[in-house]
Design a protein around this nucleic acid. Structure first.
Length: 422
RNA sequence: GUGGGCGUCGCCUAGUGGUCUAAGGCGCCAGGUUGUGGCCCUGGAGAUCGAGGGUUCGAAUCCCUCCGUCCACCCCA
């Protein structure tokens, strides 16, 4: 029978054997968040579509062609969450979190949806772990946010990562810089690739991160934004760098780093593994001081990052990084006669109550087949109940590793199994 | 949205116009006598060769379309 159904294009079944990786990442993230004082906040999978078009930017690819937009039966325009920051800011406003001590530190672990063409490390549904610190403009918060991201990768054991850092100014200095950039490119437009011709018009910052061969020389000579920041932005950037230095986080200043979302201001950053590959970014973020106001709140600064869980896992696997194993079943209860069947079921239940992970045989398999199953499951012990055991209220407890077995009272099984921690 | 590679049992693979009513390995199920696993042996289930159309006396093998998948562009996590 050919498969009739498969997971929708660009989506992923997370199989049992992959679960330990997810658990490892999530447990580590969650522990770090606790250490840094971040509290978990989960928002709905869908939101009003305009929340995203307003914040991320009407002209961005995310909004223009990647958002899953639909109308519900009541005629509401909704969108599957294409990024994590806007919903958190919405929730901050809706729940009056401005009355809490600022900054409000939040984290999330949520599915993200983008209608993209799938390829290595790129999915239509992926998971982002992210944090947001809302309500404080100080550069120390920038450093703290970046530190948490960096520490996450450290604790996961990822190596060979580079932290790219840049500042893209604010409403004060950006217009002047964009003008400068346009002036620089004006007489060079014929040297530049097709895409860049368009970027010159609608998003000149993007000229800087073009990857076309022919555009590289021009980019190399372009004036870096960091030389033209206003005093406030410049000082902010300097303080951020000294904080990072203070806690020993190495970063690479990258004047070509801009981001694809409109709401960013000042600090932007991105972490990349050393391996080549198109989907290099495993975590990135930036400051968004104008976003809350744009969503109808009082002017409130904020900063955060999003981290692609599937990409992190790809890198863990690539590096052969060991992760904590999932819990193993310890005991498999086999039975010999039909009469022992319910005893076996009962024993399994009792063992679980006593904290021993246990499975009972089912169906009408022969004892031999049951033992084979026990072996395949990788359990430490097989508990066998047959005619003899029924008589005496005992079980035959067999240690599969070396075949040692003994008869023990039914009630002693848990203790016996827990004696020798595996 | 653009370009390229690929598509044979759950997984990996053989087969490139007739010998294919499709072969093997892994995995799964059963058995190797009397209450017991791992190795070994035997057997079994499981594929109309991604889908639809076409060429041909004849197609898994050639052509077209679609779908899926992978890779790159783009974008981003």
């Amino acid at each position: 029978m050919p498969l009739q159904y498969r997971a929708p294009r660009g989506t992923l079944d997370v199989l049992p054997q992959d679960q330990p990786y997810r658990d490892f990442v999530q447990d580590t993230a969650s522990r770090l968040c606790a250490a840094f004082g971040y509290k978990r906040l989960e928002t709905p999978v869908f939101e009003e579509a305009s929340l995203f078009s307003r914040s991320v930017g009407e002209a961005t690819d995310i909004v223009q062609r990647e958002m899953y937009v639909f109308q519900d039966r009541g005629g509401q325009e909704l969108a599957l969450r294409p990024e994590g920051t806007a919903p958190i800011c919405r929730a901050y406003l809706q729940n009056g979190m401005h009355v809490l001590p600022q900054p409000v530190r939040l984290w999330y672990w949520s599915p993200i949806f983008r209608y993209d063409r799938p390829q290595a490390g790129r999915y239509r549904q992926h998971t982002q772990f992210g944090i947001e610190a809302i309500g404080e403009a100080d550069a120390a918060v920038d450093a703290e946010v970046i530190e948490l991201l960096w520490r996450l990768f450290e604790e996961l054991g990822l190596t060979g990562l580079t932290l790219h850092l840049n500042s893209i100014g604010d409403a004060n200095c950006r217009p002047a810089y964009l003008q400068l950039l346009r002036d620089y490119y004006r007489d060079k437009l014929k040297l530049v690739c097709n895409d860049c011709q368009g970027r010159y018009e609608y998003n000149p910052l993007r000229l800087l991160d073009c990857k076309q061969e022919r555009c590289q020389p021009l980019i190399a000579e372009a004036p870096p934004f960091t030389d033209y920041l206003c005093d406030d932005c410049s000082e902010h950037f300097q303080r951020l760098r000294s904080y990072l230095d203070e806690v020993g986080i190495p970063c690479a200043l990258n004047p070509r780093l801009v981001r694809g979302l409109d709401y960013y201001s000042r600090t932007v950053f991105e972490v990349q593994p050393s391996e080549e590959g198109a989907q290099s970014s495993i975590g990135s973020g930036g400051r968004y001081d104008g976003l809350i106001e744009q969503l109808g709140g009082r002017p409130t600064p904020g900063i955060g990052f999003g981290c692609g869980v599937e990409r992190v896992i790809i890198n863990l696997k690539r590096q052969g990084q060991p992760v904590p194993a999932a819990q193993q079943i310890q005991v498999f209860v086999a039975f010999q006669t039909a009469a022992a069947r319910s005893q076996a079921f009962r024993l399994a239940s009792d063992l679980r109550r006593q904290g021993v992970a246990t499975l009972a045989a089912g169906g009408k398999r022969s004892l031999k087949a049951q033992m084979r199953q026990a072996d395949a499951l990788g359990v430490a012990y097989a508990a066998i109940i047959g005619q003899r055991e029924l008589q005496g209220g005992t079980v035959t407890l067999r240690r599969l590793a070396d075949g040692f077995q003994e008869t023990v009272p039914m009630t002693d099984v848990a203790a016996r199994v827990q004696e020798e921690p595996k």
